[in-house]
């Protein structure tokens, strides 16, 4: 069951704040060497960043996008396939479908640990930094339209 839109957006806002704060404190892009030598504080920051990035994407996908399209944009997509909701929101300028699915892929890669391959971990985290900035930007537009 979906959360009420205001509750879901409030959760997203919290995720985005933590993402923004984490992004301001970490090297970007990250290298395998930096990860290899990372102090515990940086590891904790990265863990928090990854968790919030995945949660933000998930909460938007599960609780926000369809409700936003139906309730705020007054589009009749209550029973449409999710991909059709995404396509609609792309046409209305709120996201890009190919980037949305890329963000999903990056989140999936980051759910695994790669102790034998720090380069891969660094690549995924660096891609997530770019993706997270994009995702929080989309969230801000959705929040503005919802308030307006």
């Amino acid at each position: 069951m979906s959360l009420p839109l205001d509750v879901a957006l409030s959760q997203c806002d919290r995720h985005a704040e933590i993402i923004d704060d984490a992004l301001s404190q970490m090297p970007s892009p990250l290298t395998a060497e930096q990860l290899h030598q990372a102090a515990p504080d940086l590891i904790r920051l990265l863990d928090q960043f990854v968790l919030r990035f995945i949660k933000l994407h998930d909460t938007l996908g599960t609780h926000v996008l369809r409700q936003f399209a139906v309730r705020i944009l007054a589009e009749p997509v209550e029973d449409s396939a999710f991909i059709d909701v995404l396509n609609l929101l792309e046409r209305r300028g709120y996201l890009m479908v190919d980037q949305w699915t890329l963000q999903r892929s990056i989140g999936n890669i980051l759910t695994h640990e790669y102790p034998d391959d720090p380069l891969r971990q660094a690549q995924a985290l660096s891609a997530a930094q770019v993706a997270a900035r994009q995702l929080t930007g989309w969230l801000r537009r959705i929040q503005e339209r919802t308030k307006g």
Partner: peptide, 25 residues
């Protein structure tokens, strides 16, 4: 490594679009 990572990511993204949001590694 960079090319492989980008291709892997784009392939997974394509598959999410065509197969739905399945867990694909």
């Amino acid at each position: 490594p960079q090319d492989a990572f980008e291709r892997e990511n784009r392939m997974a993204a394509d598959l999410y679009r065509t197969l739905g949001e399945r867990k694909i590694d």
